[in-house]
Computed example of a mutant assay.
Amino acid sequence: MDVKDNRLKNRFETEIDGYKAFVEYEVKPNVLVLTHTEVDKRLAGKGVGSEMIEAVLLQMELRGLKAIPECPFIAKYIDKHPEWKSILA
C-alpha cells in the first residue's frame, strides 16, 4: 500500500481504486497523536484500515517517532498487534 504523509493536512493518505483513506494526526515533539482514521465506505471490509495503520506505524518507526493512539481503531489495532507497543509514547 502506498501511504504518503501529507504534512500540510497533518494526515497520512492513500487512494485505492479512486477512493481515499487517511489517518489524521497532531504533531508534538517526536510524537504523533493519531486522532482519526477514515476509510471510504466503498473500501470498507477489505482490510484497508488495518493495512494503512501498519504502513503508518512503520513509517513512524523508521522516522524515530512515537505514537499516542487517540483513535479507538488504532488503539485496538495496537492492542491486537503487541509488536507495535514499543512505538507508544
Rank of each mutant, 00 (worst) to 15 (best):
M1A: 13
M1R: 08
D2M: 07
V3Q: 06
V3N: 05
V3Y: 07
D5Y: 03
D5G: 02
N6Q: 06
R7I: 15
K9L: 13
K9N: 11
K9P: 00
N10D: 08
N10K: 07
N10Q: 13
R11F: 06
F12E: 02
E13Q: 08
T14Y: 02
E15F: 05
E15M: 12
I16D: 03
I16N: 03
D17Y: 00
D17I: 00
K20C: 02
K20G: 00
A21Q: 04
A21R: 04
F22Y: 15
F22A: 05
E24H: 11
Y25W: 06
Y25D: 04
E26D: 13
V27M: 07
V27H: 01
K28L: 09
P29A: 11
P29L: 11
L32H: 10
L32N: 03
V33M: 02
V33F: 04
V33T: 13
L34Y: 06
T35F: 06
H36E: 07
T37S: 02
T37E: 00
E38T: 13
E38R: 08
V39P: 01
V39I: 14
D40Y: 05
K41E: 15
K41P: 03
R42V: 14
A44P: 01
G45K: 10
K46H: 12
K46D: 03
V48H: 10
V48K: 05
G49R: 04
G49L: 03
S50C: 03
S50P: 01
E51M: 09
E51Q: 14
M52T: 13
I53E: 00
I53Q: 00
E54P: 00
L57V: 11
L58D: 14
Q59R: 09
Q59W: 01
M60N: 08
M60K: 07
E61N: 13
R63V: 02
K66S: 12
I68S: 08
I68E: 10
P69F: 08
P69N: 09
P72M: 00
I74Q: 01
A75R: 12
Y77R: 04
Y77N: 05
K80H: 12
K80R: 15
K80Y: 02
E83I: 12
E83G: 11
E83F: 07
E83S: 14
W84H: 14
W84Y: 15
W84N: 11
K85V: 15
S86G: 11
I87A: 13
L88V: 15
A89K: 09
A89Y: 10
